[in-house]
C-alpha cells in the first residue's frame, strides 16, 4: 500500500480545523461564563456550593501534596547545597520554588484530577440525560446556571488552595531541615523571609487564578458538549484532565516569562 501525501495533508488539515474549533469553543465558554457573572439572577448559593466542592473538599489532598513536596524538596536541595556548604539556602530556595512555581502548578494539577474530571462527568451526564435541555426549556440559561458558578469559584479557590500548599510545603521543608538535617530553625525562617518577595507570592497566586479558569472552563466545556452516552461522558472526563493539564503547563511557561 502506498502512502498518499495528499491524504496526510487532508488528515493534518482536518485535525487542525478540529483543534481550532475546540479552541474557539473553549474561549467562547470562557467569555460567556465570565459575562454572566454580572448578569442577574446572581446564583450565590451555587457559587458557595462550588467553592465548597472545589476548595474545601480539595484542601486535604492539597495539604498532603504540599507537605510532601516541601519535605522532598528540602531533602533534594540539601544534597546539592551541602557540596558547597550553603545549607542555609535550603529554606529560601524551597520557599521561592514553591511560591513562584510548584505551589500553583502542583495545586492546579491535583485539582484538575479531582475537580476538572468531576465537572466534565457531571455536566456530561446532565447533557446525555437531557437535564441541560430541561434547564433551557425552563427558560434558565444553562451556561449561567451550571458553568458560571463553577468557573468563578474555581478562580477564587485555586489561589486559596495555593496559599495552603505554599504554607504547608514551607512548614514541611522546615521540619525536614531543622529536625532531620540539623539546621538552625531561626536562621531558616529569617533567610526565607529575607529572600522571598511579596511579588513572588502575588504572581504565584495570579498564576493559580488563571489555572483555576483553565481547569473549570475546559471541564465544563467538555462536559457541556459531551455526546454519545456513557462512552462520551467518560471520554469528556478524560479529555478534560488531559487538555487542562497540558494547558496549565503551557500557560505556566508564558505567565512566568511575562510576569517575572
Amino acid at each position: 500500500m502506498t502512502l498518499n501525501p495528499f491524504n496526510i495533508f487532508e488528515y493534518i488539515g482536518e485535525k487542525f480545523t478540529l483543534f481550532l474549533e475546540e479552541l474557539g469553543g473553549i474561549f467562547s465558554t470562557f467569555l460567556q461564563s465570565f459575562g454572566f457573572i454580572v448578569v442577574p439572577p446572581f446564583r450565590f448559593r451555587l457559587f458557595l456550593k462550588q467553592m465548597e466542592f472545589i476548595g474545601v473538599e480539595s484542601s486535604f489532598i492539597v495539604l498532603l501534596t504540599g507537605a510532601f513536596t516541601g519535605m522532598v524538596f528540602a531533602l533534594q536541595t540539601s544534597y546539592a547545597f551541602k557540596l558547597f556548604g550553603a545549607e542555609n539556602l535550603i529554606g529560601p530556595s524551597v520557599a521561592l520554588s514553591l511560591t513562584r512555581e510548584l505551589g500553583p502548578v502542583l495545586t492546579a494539577l491535583m485539582v484538575t484530577g479531582r475537580v476538572g474530571s468531576a465537572m466534565a462527568a457531571e455536566l456530561g451526564t446532565m447533557r446525555v440525560t437531557e437535564q441541560i435541555d430541561a434547564l433551557y426549556t425552563m427558560s434558565i440559561n444553562p451556561v449561567q446556571y451550571l458553568v458560571t458558578p463553577r468557573v468563578s469559584s474555581s478562580v477564587v479557590m485555586l489561589p486559596m488552595l495555593t496559599v495552603l500548599f505554599d504554607f504547608i510545603g514551607i512548614i514541611g521543608s522546615y521540619f525536614m531541615a531543622v529536625f532531620l538535617l540539623g539546621l538552625n530553625g531561626e536562621r531558616f525562617i529569617n533567610d526565607t523571609i529575607y529572600m522571598v518577595d511579596l511579588k513572588d507570592i502575588y504572581i504565584g497566586l495570579l498564576k493559580a487564578a488563571v489555572f483555576g479558569a483553565i481547569i473549570s472552563v475546559v471541564g465544563c466545556y467538555k462536559g457541556y458538549f459531551a455526546e454519545k452516552g456513557a462512552e462520551g461522558v467518560g471520554k469528556a472526563a478524560t479529555q478534560a484532565v488531559v487538555i487542562a493539564s497540558v494547558s496549565i503547563l503551557i500557560a505556566d511557561y508564558f505567565l512566568t516569562a511575562l510576569l517575572f
Binding site: 446532565m126 437531557e130 425552563m138
Partner: peptide
C-alpha cells in the same frame, strides 16, 4: 424567546429530572 418558553412545559423521554 425565553419569555415565550415560560408558557411551555416539556416532559422529556428520559424525564430529565435533576438527579
Amino acid at each position: 424567546f425565553s419569555d415565550i418558553l415560560k408558557n411551555f412545559g416539556v416532559l422529556f423521554q428520559s424525564a430529565a429530572l435533576f438527579d
